[in-house]
């Protein structure tokens, strides 16, 4: 029997994804026990789950260490891995946005300084507008950049907008909606076609738990 290796993003999103998989018959009791293990197998169902850092899911799948995985659209846009994107799970919904200080007005005469964790997404977006920008790559606490004058705006994920509000920032433009996607390694898709297709169909039939 073929074993499907599934990379799940560590954290809340991954747990939600596992619940979806479980609800359509891909359960793995070992994963629900409290422990520090990273790999969990259910030989009867022919599946092996493992938790990896969310931004690494695409790498595990692209390189074939995982046959399928679940990653946010933000990660897929940023790293552009060579994988199949088979389904939109409709969970982990948020938006990739441009935000800035409330009183900030874009002066088209100067280079726009953009702080972000997602340089590729920012560059693609602004080059589609033919806007000259200076990218400042940060690894966290992006919201602080405009407050300290490090950047004019930020490009970041916005879920509810509360963090922005609390920091005196507001949403300026929406770049792209984000949600969790089911991705598959291109070669695994061929050699484990039946198993992968069955899983995708089962997951697609299942209604997402949040709209």
């Amino acid at each position: 029997m073929t074993v499907l290796n599934i990379a799940l993003p560590k954290g809340r999103l991954g747990e939600k994804v596992y619940r979806i998989f479980k609800s359509v018959g891909y359960d793995c009791p070992a994963i629900e026990e409290e422990n520090r293990k990273l790999v969990f197998e259910n030989p009867e169902k022919g599946i092996r789950y493992f938790w990896v850092k969310p931004s690494d899911v695409a790498i595990y799948v692209e390189r074939g260490a995982a046959d399928i995985g679940v990653a946010g659209k933000d990660i897929l846009l940023e790293y552009a891995p060579d994988v199949y994107e088979l389904a939109d799970l409709g969970i982990g919904r948020c938006r990739m946005c441009v935000a800035g200080k409330k009183d900030f007005r874009d002066d088209l005469d100067t280079t726009l300084r953009v702080a972000t964790k997602f340089p590729r997404i920012a560059r693609t977006y602004y080059s589609s507008l033919s806007r000259d920008i200076d990218i400042i790559k940060l690894n966290g606490s992006i919201e602080i950049a405009p407050l300290l004058g490090l950047s004019d705006v930020i490009v970041d994920i916005v879920e509810t907008g509360r963090t922005l509000l609390e920091n005196g920032l507001e949403l300026k433009e929406e770049i792209v909606p984000i949600s969790a996607r089911l991705v598959a390694n291109k070669v695994s898709y061929k050699f484990k076609n039946d198993a992968i297709r069955q899983l995708v169909e089962a997951v697609e039939r299942c209604q997402p738990e949040e709209a």
């Binding site: 692209e62 390189r63 074939g64 260490a65 060579d82 390694n185 291109k186 070669v187 061929k190 050699f191």
Partner: peptide, 9 residues
Amino acid sequence: GYLPGLASG
């Protein structure tokens, strides 16, 4: 063309 066990074509 693909071979089983190799992650890319």
